[in-house]
């Protein structure tokens, strides 16, 4: 991993859909990452655009977003267009869903228009799985409730491996609102599968039940949790998904669990910072760190998102043609 060549082949997956990282074979994860590296080289200009395979030529990708998102939706759109596909964005707020149409009805209706890939984001965990049972298209989960966000985990792994040349053995702390985070779950599976030394850091009230059974050390103190870590991945405090008052105040949260320069001193000397975005500046992360071009990988993550999604879109189209 880490080397980029033109010879990396397109990936085929054993599943028709990309619904989550849990249970995905390590070989497929590695193949997707290798292919993502190739596309990343296109994005950074080391491989010319003309070399991009037009794997999605004549194919239709539908972005079906039941939750607002700019970054993920645009990322999928750019990725699909770079591969020659056409993209339809369905803004749910203006659609028949608001008139009471169910997810299955929406799926059936869209299916009749024969899209090739449906990219779905939904506030309910499991919605992409339900959708996948009612459509012929391949379904990509672009985030379902608190469950999974597989392409985010892939782009995070891509970002890390481009920076460090490896993932195995790196000490990575995932910090913040673990209970409400699909990014944490997908990364737990993906980075864990690739051999990273993970740890979770969160206030006790934002830890999901029985998280200690997931085989990763859990900390309720940020400074000891990130001690000697190569990467500190901060999560967004998902106030919109919270059940009640899990924390006393954002003021206390920033004080105890927000990443600032002083706390970051505990991490490895050259530790890098990640955040899936959008950030709550001054809540989970101090702007000084978020904007530190030497430490922050946050913009790189966005860039790598396009490459990782190109690999995923291509894999599902190539897989469907076999």
């Amino acid at each position: 991993m880490g080397t980029t060549t033109k010879t990396v082949p397109p990936v085929t997956l054993t599943q028709r859909h990309l619904l989550g990282i849990e249970g995905m074979p390590v070989t497929e994860i590695e193949a997707l990452l290798a292919r993502s590296h190739f596309f990343a080289s296109v994005i950074d200009g080391s491989i010319p655009d003309s070399d991009i395979p037009q794997s999605l030529a004549g194919k239709t990708v539908v972005n079906l977003f039941f939750e607002n998102s700019t970054r993920t939706r645009v990322s999928f759109e750019v990725a699909a267009k770079k591969l020659g596909g056409s993209v339809l964005n369905i803004a749910v707020s203006g659609s028949s869903v608001k008139k009471g149409e169910t997810l299955i009805d929406t799926a059936t209706t869209l299916n009749a228009m024969h899209p090739d890939i449906l990219v779905i984001r939904h506030h309910a965990a499991g919605a992409p799985l339900l959708l996948s049972r009612h459509v012929d298209a391949a379904v990509i989960n672009a985030g379902d409730g608190r469950h999974e966000h597989p392409t985010q985990a892939l782009l995070d792994a891509l970002t890390i491996s481009r920076k460090f040349g490896r993932i195995a053995g790196l000490k990575i702390a995932i910090c913040g609102d673990i209970a409400n985070s699909r990014v944490a779950r997908s990364n737990l599976y993906l980075l864990g599968t690739l051999g990273a030394e993970l740890r979770l850091v969160s206030p006790a009230t934002l830890l999901p039940a029985d998280i200690d059974q997931f085989g990763v050390p859990v900390f309720t103190d940020l400074e000891s949790g990130i001690a000697d870590c190569d990467i500190v991945m901060m999560l967004r405090l998902q106030t919109e998904r919270m059940q009640g008052r899990e924390i006393p105040s954002q003021h206390e949260y920033f004080n105890m669990f927000g990443l600032d320069e002083a706390k970051l001193m505990r991490a490895a000397p050259q530790a890098l910072i990640m955040h899936p975005g959008p950030m709550n500046r001054g809540v989970e992360i101090d702007s000084v760190i978020a904007d530190d071009i030497d430490r922050s990988l946050i913009t790189t993550q966005v860039e790598m998102g396009v490459a990782a999604r190109m690999a995923c879109l291509e894999a599902l189209i190539v897989g469907a043609s076999i």
Binding site: A125, G126, D144, R146, R185, A209, D210, Q243, G244
Partner: peptide, 21 residues
């Protein structure tokens, strides 16, 4: 149990669903 979908535990955590203890 407010807002819960299932039993609380490792399975609810894995599924990303709200559990009721």
């Amino acid at each position: 149990s407010d807002g819960s979908d299932m039993n609380e535990g490792a399975t609810s955590t894995r599924l990303g669903l709200i559990g009721s203890p």
